[in-house]
């Protein structure tokens, strides 16, 4: 049985933690440090912090990130507003392992190459947000889902891989925060097109969805956000993370040995 990474993604905004639905309606959830402490206690595999205001504000909250990561004894990815290799260096120094680039992935692929050349491919994660446009075509959106990019998801994923990204977080904006399950067709299209790990994101509502992201979506890891911070859709906040036993019984043991490139 192979362990497959299960990654909570925490969204930062308004000097706290928020949660969105389809990248809109941010709901304030309080201090992210409390959430990080709980994920640490529950021995989460990895955490990703995304500051969804940083690009618009043109600023990275380095000290705040330091405070948050000092509570996390697991690998940490940070994304939001990273536009230079110097900013990446500062984040690594403060205890971040992976830099997540989203807007910069589409607008400045050189940044991926520069970070990868200095810190290795494993240190750069390309985050690709996808939404169906008016003509039912899957399109990439940057700037927190606001700006349509020129490339389609597969083309951008390949470009990020060629530039040196070590993995890709692929998010369906249409599913994000809905608890309706991942867009496995989208996942499969991208995961089959690149030879680096693709992390499924957007729509997970239950551990069963993780399994489908791997068996049908061909992903190497799974991420979720709402599922880990709310009891259920439209219910109160509850930080949770599945137990080792639940992941074994409902997820890892159901993946065929040769089913996934992990």
């Amino acid at each position: 049985m192979k362990r497959i990474r299960v990654i909570p993604i925490l969204l930062l905004a308004q000097s706290g933690m928020v949660k969105t639905e389809r990248f809109a309606k941010p709901r304030y959830l309080g201090d992210p440090i409390n959430a990080v402490k709980i994920f640490n206690e529950k021995r989460a595999d990895e955490l990703v912090l995304l500051d969804i205001e940083a690009t618009a504000k043109g600023r990275i909250e380095f000290d705040w990130i330091s405070d948050i990561v000092s509570e996390a004894f697991m690998p940490i990815g940070y994304g939001g507003g990273v536009a230079s290799v110097e900013q990446a260096a500062e984040l690594f120094k403060r205890g971040v392992e992976k830099i997540v680039v989203n807007t910069a992935a589409a607008e400045n692929p050189n940044l991926i190459s520069q970070i990868a050349a200095r810190y290795g491919n494993q240190a750069v994660v390309a985050s690709i947000d996808v939404k169906m446009n008016f003509w039912k075509k899957s399109r990439v959106y940057t700037r927190n889902g606001r700006k349509e990019a020129a490339a389609d998801p597969v083309t951008l994923a390949r470009a990020c891989r060629d530039a040196g990204a070590g993995e890709i977080i692929l998010t369906s904006i249409d599913r994000e925060g809905t608890f309706g399950g991942y867009d496995t067709a989208l996942l499969e299209t991208v995961a089959s097109a690149v030879d680096i790990p693709v992390v499924a994101n957007g729509g997970a509502g239950a551990v069963d969805d993780f399994k489908r992201a791997v068996t049908e979506g061909k992903c190497s890891a799974v991420a979720a956000s709402s599922m880990f911070v709310f009891a259920k859709k439209d219910e109160g906040m509850l930080i949770s993370y599945p137990s080792e036993q639940e992941l074994q019984d409902k997820f890892w043991s159901r993946i065929p040995r040769s089913g996934a490139g992990i």
Partner: peptide, 13 residues
């Protein structure tokens, strides 16, 4: 032979 990717990334017993 089972399609394992390189780098080896993740938690391993």
């Amino acid at each position: 032979t089972l399609g394992e990717k390189v780098p080896h990334m993740g938690w391993t017993v």
